[in-house]
């Protein structure tokens, strides 16, 4: 599934309008612990988190993730937006809490893989 399809299906707010959303999403990973994410997520995963600081972009870049979705309508820090645009990591926001959002991603066919 492509990232733009997820954005459209779940009405996500895209915070990085300059970035291409035509990226293949291989699966999903949800966690707020950065060591857990870097150790266990997979290439091309979309990452669901409540962390809004700039270091999430470093983690997503190192793991070649397809994008990050912030939950509960949390707004990314300005530094995070700048890093996301610089590193080419699409950043989206959902108004849903993590549990609901992950459930909907699962319904769309996204798995932890």
């Amino acid at each position: 599934m492509k990232l733009y399809e997820i954005v459209n299906s779940l009405s996500l707010e895209v915070k990085t309008p300059s970035l291409d959303l035509n990226k293949e999403v291989t699966g999903g990973y949800v966690s707020d612990l950065l060591s857990d994410v870097i150790g266990n997520s997979k290439k091309g995963n979309v990452w669901i988190t409540l962390q809004t600081h700039q270091n999430i972009i470093a983690v997503a870049t190192l793991r070649d993730m397809s994008g990050i979705i912030l939950v509960n309508g949390r707004n990314p820090d300005v530094d995070t937006l700048l890093k996301a645009a610089e590193q080419g990591i699409p950043l989206m926001v959902s108004s849903l809490p993590a549990f609901e959002l992950v459930g909907r991603l699962y319904s769309l066919g996204i798995r932890c893989q």
Binding site: L33, L34, S35, G39, N55
Partner: peptide, 16 residues
């Protein structure tokens, strides 16, 4: 609170 310091750093290094 930033999601660091979960005690997984050195074990992650060892594992990889």
């Amino acid at each position: 609170e930033m999601g660091f310091g979960s005690g997984m750093g050195l074990p992650n290094i060892k594992k990889n």
